[in-house]
């Protein structure tokens, strides 16, 4: 039996995850208000990535899933990252 069948997320735990996500949202709004230019794109995307990571781990329960599923999801994001890199290499060097 895998961990996911035995693990049940607690209400309090989920509420804390929401608080963290709301805090990060506030943070990204405040930071972009400051207008750092190109840097604010980077900061906003970094904060968004952290938020997505938290949602994947706790709300989507990946922290407690099988290694297979976790690896699959990780590989999809790595693949997408590679696609972005390859596309930009193409655009900048053509």
């Amino acid at each position: 039996m895998s961990k996911s069948d035995t693990h049940i997320s607690r209400y309090r735990e989920l509420a804390l995850v929401l608080l963290a996500l709301l805090f990060l949202t506030l943070l990204s709004v405040l930071i972009t208000e400051l207008h750092f230019g190109a840097l604010s794109v980077f900061v906003a995307l970094t904060v968004a990535s952290v938020k997505v990571f938290i949602v994947l781990l706790y709300f989507m329960h990946l922290k407690f899933e099988s290694l297979l599923l976790r690896l699959l999801v990780g590989m999809v994001f790595v693949l997408y990252g590679l696609i972005i890199i390859v596309t930009f290499i193409d655009y900048f060097f053509r």
Binding site: A44, L45, A48
Partner: peptide, 22 residues
């Protein structure tokens, strides 16, 4: 629920890209 979280996930990226980063 997984599907609903995906909807949330995509919005998390859409929000800064369309509304915040000006």
């Amino acid at each position: 629920a997984l599907y609903w979280h995906l909807v949330d996930l995509i919005w998390i990226f859409l929000f800064p890209l369309l509304y915040l980063v000006t």
